[in-house]
Nucleic acid binder design. Structure first.
Length: 509
RNA sequence: GCCCUCAUCGUCUAGGGGACUAGGACGUGGCCCUUUCAAGGCCAAAACCGGGGUUCGAAUCCCCGUGAGGGCACCA
């Protein structure tokens, strides 16, 4: 695709990017992807990554949202050099704390003739829209206060009328929006409204606030969702009106709603489809047992590609080749099944101790008393079975909850191992386990049980015995590897299970 | 309705005129391995949205359709 652009070659000495969420809720996975790409680009160039909170809509601000966003970002490893909590040279990093700045520059625009005061009341605007609708027109602000004389403005102000400040958009000509990812985008000025820059609440709208902040915070690249493309010509006009050097804009492709139409948003609900989790909030990924490294790897390959036909790579490797210019502009769904695979790969690579520590919180959440030493023993055998750490709960339930062995005899026998032979086999196993002189380790267990199993069937195959043994020991037909499970359970508990099995067999005969 | 963006296997993607019988990954199916379930190995099916151009040559460039997404707030 063409990337014709009017972008300046070297616009800034230092690379500075910001992630600027509004605190209207939790951080969702799409926001995290935007943050990641911004973070990667800043880090790649040895620049700074800044967190700024855009809370100029007081009505929509949600308690705890800032905390949630920061917690989620830190979990992912997206640390910031400047921000509300860590401070920085351009403090404060919360927009409501910068109100005077916006007030000053909004009025500067009015003085210079780039903006004007609009005294329309809510009622008046509503009536205007109704009339337009009645005429079959698309509702739009009709610029009724744009050309007031200074006397008229003074008169209305003297009456104490409230006003907003609107941008005085050129009525003719074009505005070019240079976009790093798409190239130049051309807009007809007549299509652009006189947007509100400064609200009657005394706070700016996004349009004004971001330009002022990005200027004074010396931001070099503005990364944001592509829902901003349509208002970008306004932003270009503002940069020109202020006479400030414009940063490079890069509009990130949207992530589509996995469950249907539209884009993924904070309203999107997480759900489970078969065994596939489809998650939205970043914190949910943590709760489900995804590793932050896997999530980052996953996100890196959506809308951008590592290349070389490689799917698994480290952040350090990504840093070597990441570039915003190579971001794919098309909207995309998240390939959740790939995340499960990736996460499984990352889990397999974990050292036993790290794996045990990762799993422990999920077990403890069940109210189970977790012993890390035992966990280090059983965690590696199940690591290859896990897509998500939370699944360890089901695999290890037999360790923490006694699954009652209250089953018909068919469950602990086999057509190649009828009750009489089963009794012999389980008795021998019981004798071994309860013999204080026997060695209770993996190698011995393997040798002894295989030998018992082979001796008991006609064709010398240990399979039937080991299968029933698994059921006896864990109470489940599917479990972690048998010998490791027996080891983790310990001699006493295994012996008790075998005693129960023998009782069932005795009851049958 | 108007404006803007985008368009390669089911999904995520590689691809910047000839290296394309279009590559990789996930997922799916089959085989192997196997004490369950997995993992692993091998194999297979699977795509350039349609139509016009430009060119010796187009998945790649242009135009028109179509589809998808976004915007048209005193929300960001």
């Amino acid at each position: 695709m063409t990337r014709e652009t009017t972008l300046p070659k070297i616009p800034h000495m230092t690379i500075r990017l910001r992630f600027a969420p509004s605190p209207t809720g939790y951080l969702h996975i799409g926001g995290a992807r935007t943050a990641l790409f911004s973070w990667l680009f800043a880090k790649k160039h040895g620049g700074q990554f800044i967190l700024r909170i855009e809370d100029t809509d007081e009505k929509r601000s949600v308690e705890g949202a800032i905390e949630n966003i920061m917690t989620s970002m830190r979990w992912l490893g997206l640390d910031w050099d400047e921000g509300p909590d860590v401070g920085g040279d351009f403090d404060p990093y919360i927009q409501t704390e910068r109100a005077e700045l916006y007030h000053k520059w909004a009025h500067w625009l009015v003085e210079k003739g780039h903006a004007y005061k609009c005294f329309a009341t809510a009622v008046e605007l509503d009536q205007m829209r109704q009339e337009q609708l009645a005429r079959g027109e698309t509702p739009h602000y009709d610029r009724r206060y744009r050309d007031l004389s200074s006397e008229q403005v003074a008169q209305l102000e003297a009456e104490g009328r409230e006003y907003v400040i609107r941008h005085k958009m050129p009525l003719t000509g074009q505005t070019i929006v240079p976009d790093l990812i798409r190239g130049d985008i051309v807009f007809e000025n007549e299509q652009i409204n006189d947007y509100v820059l400064f609200k009657s609440t005394g706070l700016p709208t996004y349009h004004l606030a971001h330009v002022i902040d990005d200027h004074f915070m010396e931001i070099s690249h503005v990364t944001r969702g592509d829902e901003w493309i349509n208002t970008a010509p306004l932003h270009v006009q503002l940069w020109q009106a202020f006479g400030w050097e414009m940063p490079i804009y890069a509009h990130m492709p949207v992530i589509l709603n996995p469950s249907g139409k539209g884009k993924l948003s904070k309203r999107t609900q997480s759900f489970q489809d078969e065994n596939q989790l489809v998650l939205v909030r970043v914190e949910e990924f943590q709760e489900a047992g995804y590793l932050p490294t896997a999530v980052i790897n996953f996100l890196s390959n959506v809308g951008w590609s590592f290349g070389d036909d490689r799917e698994i790579f480290t952040v350090a490797e990504t840093l070597e080749r990441f570039d915003l210019k190579n971001v794919n502009p098309s909207a995309t769904k998240l390939p959740y099944s790939k995340l499960d695979w990736l996460n499984g790969q990352y889990i397999q690579e974990l050292e036993p101790e790290a794996l045990a520590q990762g799993i422990a919180p999920f077990l403890e959440a069940q109210g189970w008393a977790v012993d890390l030493e035992t966990l280090v023993l059983v965690a590696p055998p199940i690591s290859v079975r896990l897509k998500r750490l939370a699944e360890a709960v089901d695999w290890l339930r037999f360790l923490y909850e006694q699954v009652p062995l209250d089953v018909p005899v068919e469950k602990i026998t086999h057509k190649k191992m009828p009750p009489e032979q089963a009794r012999v086999a389980f008795t021998r196993a019981h004798d071994f386990v309860t013999d204080p002189a026997s060695t209770y380790d993996l190698a011995t267990l393997t040798a002894v049980l295989n030998e018992i199993g082979a001796s008991v069937t006609d064709n010398g195959a240990a399979g039937p015995f080991l299968g029933t043994m698994r059921f006896v020991v864990t109470g489940e037909p599917v479990s972690p590897p048998l010998f490791e499970s027996m080891l983790a359970l310990g001699r006493e508990r295994v012996a008790a299970r075998l005693t129960q099995a023998l009782a069932i067999l005795a009851g049958d005969s």
